[in-house]
């Protein structure tokens, strides 16, 4: 494997972390050395506790991503293609958009409880807006000629939406999903910190209260790695789903 300058930077920062704790530059029990952190992480991975929690968190994140993403795409399509829906619901969406997610948690708890429905809804809400915005932009940028092309062949509006507009807007929609993915993991963990015993978030709270800094940082390191892996995985998926877009873009350039 080729070691890039980015890798060197990360290795350097990690070495700085280890040294700062070992040599007492940062002198606090809440600043454990990297080696201690990794040992704690390995220990809780080995017992199977963390893997189970990670799976739970990923499940909740995935469910929220799917629900919020689907809603975002459908709403975006409806807004762009059926002007009446945009006139009816556009204002509502614009009013809800700027509300920070933490502010909607109390009413969500009231209506949905403290379990998965609430947590998944929090994630779904987070995902909904970037996907909606990008879907709208993507649909509005679709070539009018390609839509007229569908009409001249007698292709109906639903099929046009599914086979012309949606694929054409897919690069923009996927860009929205990429933004949403980064937020979704964070919000899942935050939602799990509110209540309940499941997931990475609850583990973070528990370890914080138990004063176990190595475990806490271990899970933070894990989250960073998980976020990175998810993004890489998504980019790989994106390259397969819209290979034509990357290829056509290169041809055009």
């Amino acid at each position: 494997m080729r070691i890039t300058s980015g890798t060197w930077l990360i290795l350097g920062l990690l070495a700085l972390w280890e040294a700062s704790a070992r040599l007492g530059w940062v002198d606090s029990p809440n600043w454990p050395a990297l080696s201690q952190v990794l040992a704690a992480l390995a220990a809780d991975m080995a017992t199977g506790e963390l893997p189970a929690r990670i799976c739970g968190s990923l499940w909740r994140m995935g469910a929220g991503l799917a629900a919020g993403g689907l809603a975002g795409v459908l709403t975006g399509l409806a807004f762009a293609l059926i002007p009446l829906t945009a006139r009816l619901f556009g204002v509502v969406v614009e009013l809800l958009r700027p509300i920070p997610v933490p502010a909607v948690i109390p009413p969500l708890v009231l209506f949905l409880g403290l379990d998965d429905p609430m947590k998944i809804t929090v994630v779904a809400l987070t995902v909904f807006f970037p996907v909606l915005t990008n879907t709208l932009q993507g649909v509005q940028a679709v070539e009018p000629d390609s839509i007229a092309m569908g009409r001249t062949f007698g292709i109906g509006p639903l099929r046009r939406a599914g086979f012309i507009i949606l694929p054409a807007a897919l690069p923009a929609i996927l860009a929205g999903f990429r933004v949403a993915l980064a937020l979704a993991l964070v919000v899942t963990v935050v939602a799990e910190m509110i209540a309940g015993e499941q997931g990475i978030g609850s583990y973070l709270v528990l370890m914080q209260f138990a004063g176990r800094a190595p475990e806490m940082y271990g899970v933070i390191v894990l989250l960073a790695a998980l976020g990175y892996a998810l993004n890489r995985g998504f980019v790989a998926l994106e390259r397969r789903l819209i290979a034509w877009w990357y290829a056509a873009g290169r041809e055009a350039a």
Binding site: P106, V109, G113, I194, V205
Partner: peptide
Amino acid sequence: DTSTTAGGATGLPGLVAGQ
């Protein structure tokens, strides 16, 4: 079925809400 809340913030409101 225990539910841990960090500062106890959701405890009593959750009781009122039937959680």
